[in-house]
Amino acid sequence: MPAEYSRRAVLGQIALGGALATAGPAGHAFAALDDRPWFFLTDNEARWLAAIVDVFIPADEYPSATQAGVVDYIDFQMATHYGKGARLYLQEPFSQGAPEQGYQAPCPPAELLRRGIAAALAEGDVTAQDAAGRERYVQAMSEAQGNIDDSDVPVGTFFTELLSLTNEGCFADPIYMGNNAYAGWEMVGFPGAHAYYLSFVDKHNRPFDKPPMGIAHGEYPHTFPRIVGGS
C-alpha cells in the first residue's frame, strides 16, 4: 500500500536537490493536491521520477514536467489498467529479442517501473545530484544496453517507457491528471477536445487563439479523474 505523505514535502525535497530551485514560475503543480496519497508510487519512487522527468521536460518560460503534473499522471497510469498490463500480451516464455520486436519485458509497466526504479536507486541516488549530474545520468541511461544491474529489467524498455509516459503526462487531456492547467496545450497552442473548424480550415494564416478546453470543460483540479477503461 502506498504510504500517506505529503506531495508538497516530496517535491520540496526535489526542489532543494536542485532542479526546481532554478525553475522559472514560482510554486508547482502539486500545491493544490497536497496531502493526497499517491495511488501507486512510494515517496522514493516519486522523488526519483520527479528528478528524471524534469530532465526530459525542464522548466523554462513554460512549466517543467513535474509542474505540469507528470508525476501525478504516471502515478495514476501505474495504478490503473495500463500499468497493470491491460492490452499487453504477457504469455511466457519471455526473451529480450531485437528492438524491432518491441516490448518484451517480463512484466506490466507498473512492475517494470517499480523494479527499474529500485534497481536504479540501488546504483546510487540521482536525486542527490545537481541538474547537470541528472542530465548526465539520463543521457547515460538512454545509451545503456542489456538489463539494469542485478535486475531483469531491460534498460532500453524502461527508458522508452519513462520518456513516453512523460510526454503523455505533459500533453494528455487533464482528465488523466497531467497537463495541469493545460500546461502542455498552452505551450504548443492546441485548443483541445471541443473541435469544430468547418468555417476556419481554409482561412489561411490566421491564428486561432481560443484558450484550450479539455473533455471535462476545464474542470480542474481533478475532482473527477476518469479511470482508463480496461480492454
Binding site: Y82, G85, A86, R87, L88, Y89, L90, E168, F171, A172, D173, I175, Y176, G192, A193, H194, A195, I215, V228, G229, S231
Partner: peptide
Amino acid sequence: HDEMKYAIRHHHMVDVT
C-alpha cells in the same frame, strides 16, 4: 476526442491479450 484513450491506448482496436 481523447487522444490518450483512443490514439495512444488503442481502445477501439483489437486487444492483443
